[in-house]
């Protein structure tokens, strides 16, 4: 298994696939998925550091209304 801070290893993904979803993955596929996950994880985690703790995902819908087009400037 991957050590803390190293992200997912192929073995981690293979185990999750089998235990969570009943899916059997080859070693190569699991390693590929681990690489993909680690990239997405790192980018999202890093960006999320800027978030105030109480940002509600539902703020998206209210932002659509708040930022809406109000005619020609």
């Amino acid at each position: 298994m991957a050590k803390q801070g190293e992200g997912f290893s192929g073995a981690d993904v293979k185990k999750m696939a089998a235990e969570w979803h009943g899916i059997e993955l080859s070693d190569a596929r699991a390693a590929g998925l681990a690489g993909e996950l680690n990239g997405l994880n790192a980018a999202t985690r890093s960006a999320a550091r800027r978030l105030p703790y109480d940002t509600d995902p539902a703020a998206f819908t209210s932002a659509l209304t708040r930022l809406k087009h109000k005619g020609r400037t």
Partner: peptide
């Protein structure tokens, strides 16, 4: 991570 990607959305739209 899924929730973070959702929570980052309104701020980036702003």
């Amino acid at each position: 991570r899924y929730l973070e990607s959702m929570r980052l959305r309104p701020g980036l739209m702003d």
